[in-house]
């Protein structure tokens, strides 16, 4: 997989977009911190079905920006970029002529999220606590209390128990 699918300009656009979608905040780093663009480069080669929607979508975005701002997306100012993104990031509010952009941004949002939340940074952010040896002894008591549920007597009697 040494061969690149995206050219340098496309990769730059992907990086910018992914950091707009998942920026750094007080809890965790950004999409590029989690190497999401590398993941996207890999996955479009692995799942060729993503190739045309991604390549075409990036082009669509640049053409829109050229029309509006006479610049490609990455050369726009951050404010211009956001102005553009706001047109395509909200499927239910977008104008009919923006629908292709919406579809592209949905895909970009999906791939960015998946790349991010399957990275070490992303999993820590989510707070997933498994994937390690454990002794499952049921839902913690404070959580049961929070939801006002409990294990009935029979369940407690028949289930496997641990002295934790």
């Amino acid at each position: 997989m040494a061969e690149k699918f995206f050219d340098e300009h496309e990769m730059k656009t992907i990086s910018t977009l992914s950091d707009i979608i998942i920026p750094r905040d007080e809890i965790s780093g950004s999409a590029t911190d989690a190497k999401v663009p590398d993941f996207i480069e890999f996955i479009v080669k692995d799942m060729p079905g993503h190739q045309i929607p991604m390549r075409g979508g990036l082009k669509w975005l640049d053409v829109q920006c050229m029309k509006r701002f006479k610049k490609t997306f990455v050369d726009c100012t951050p404010a211009q970029q956001i102005e553009m993104i706001d047109e395509i990031a909200f499927p239910e509010q977008a104008k009919p002529e923006m629908q292709q952009g919406v579809a592209f941004f949905n895909l970009m949002r999906d791939l960015t999220a998946t790349g991010f939340y399957t990275s070490e940074i992303g999993i820590k952010d989510l707070g997933y606590m498994g994937n390690r040896p454990n002794q499952w002894d049921g839902v913690p008591q404070d959580v049961l209390d929070q939801y006002g549920v409990k294990y009935d007597q029979r369940t407690l009697e028949i289930s496997v128990k641990y002295n934790t």
């Binding site: 707009i20 979608i21 993104i85 990031a89 909200f90 499927p91 239910e92 949905n106 949002r109 989510l126």
Partner: peptide, 18 residues
């Protein structure tokens, strides 16, 4: 909020709905 979006608030949503 409107469906979709991006940015810090989208990140919040991922934590929220997990």
């Amino acid at each position: 909020k409107p469906a979709g979006g991006y940015g810090a608030s989208l990140k919040e949503d991922h934590r929220h709905f997990y």
